[in-house]
Amino acid sequence: MKDFALIFRQPSYDYSNASPAEMQALSKKWQDWVGGIVAQGKFGNHGARLALDGKVLKAGGVITDGPFVEIRERLGSFIIVKAESLEDATTLAHGCPALDAGGSVEIRPVVG
């Protein structure tokens, strides 16, 4: 298996207006989604240099060659997953809570 970075880009959004219940629900979505990757044994590590090529998954299942950054988006965070190919890593990105908020997941092979 190879390592791939799933980079979460989200529209600039002020979370200070979200209620505690909304923040708790959002946190649970992220924990459940990442927990599913962990349960598959496909959660990796952090801190590696990224390759220049990759794909971007957007809401609605639209997949484009990437990486590209929209002006009004911000990098939220990233995780490293283990997958056989770029296509398999893209499949793991489906269900990411960033997609529910109009964000995207950039999938990049890790060099090294």
Rank of each mutant, 00 (worst) to 15 (best):
S19E: 05
S19A: 09
S19W: 08
P20N: 13
M23V: 12
Q24R: 13
Q24E: 14
Q24W: 10
L26Y: 13
S27T: 15
S27R: 12
K28A: 14
K29T: 02
Q31F: 13
Q31L: 13
Q31R: 14
Q31C: 12
W33G: 00
W33C: 04
W33I: 04
G35I: 00
G35Q: 02
G36V: 08
V38Y: 12
V38G: 01
Q40M: 09
Q40H: 00
Q40E: 10
G41H: 03
F43N: 06
F43Y: 15
N45C: 07
N45S: 15
N45Q: 12
H46D: 06
G47N: 09
A48E: 12
R49E: 15
L50S: 07
L50D: 06
A51I: 01
L52C: 07
L52R: 14
D53R: 14
D53H: 12
G54V: 08
K55S: 07
V56A: 05
L57W: 06
L57M: 08
K58M: 12
K58R: 15
A59W: 02
G60L: 09
G60D: 10
G61N: 08
G61F: 01
I63R: 06
T64V: 06
T64P: 00
D65L: 14
G66F: 04
G66Y: 04
P67D: 07
P67Q: 06
F68N: 10
F68Q: 10
V69G: 00
E70A: 12
I71T: 15
R72W: 09
E73M: 09
R74K: 15
L75T: 15
L75K: 14
F78Q: 11
I79H: 02
V81H: 01
K82G: 01
A83N: 08
E84G: 09
E84M: 06
E84I: 03
L86E: 07
E87G: 06
A89P: 02
A89E: 05
T91E: 13
H94E: 14
H94P: 01
C96W: 05
D100S: 11
D100A: 11
D100W: 02
D100V: 01
